[in-house]
Amino acid sequence: MAFQEMGKAFVGFYYPAFAEDRAKLADVYTDQSCMTFEGAQFQGKQPIVDKLTSLPFKKVNHQITTVDSQPIIGVDDNQACCVMVTGQLKTDDDPPHSFHQTFVLRPANGSFVVANDIFRLALHN
């Protein structure tokens, strides 16, 4: 299904870019983008990229377990897409952590941008 593939294609771009150079992710966010990272809220390309590039690790690797996508009916001629990712990530020499991340992708100039991005490590009480 098209939305499933769109989600997978986005994930296939996003996480390798995150690992290689977080500053590159500036391209996928706009000044209207919202990000909630571990409960902290950021809005706009620069604040989001500043947050991502300031995370204190050198190496990071994401292992994706699942990617689920849905169209958002009634938005952008039904072209917008909601993507939920689960997986594990490993930073520097730390043990791996599970995480969840949800994106809302909206069409823009023949491509897509991240309108919303919500990230959490899967830690429990």
């Binding site: 571990e38 409960g39 930073t91 520097d92 730390d94 952590h97 490590l121 830690l123 429990h124 009480n125």
Partner: peptide, 16 residues
């Protein structure tokens, strides 16, 4: 901790 402090996420379980 196991590195999650890099994400600023220590749960209450850690302090309990």
């Amino acid at each position: 901790t196991a590195g999650q402090e890099r994400f600023r996420s220590l749960t209450t379980a850690f302090y309990r």
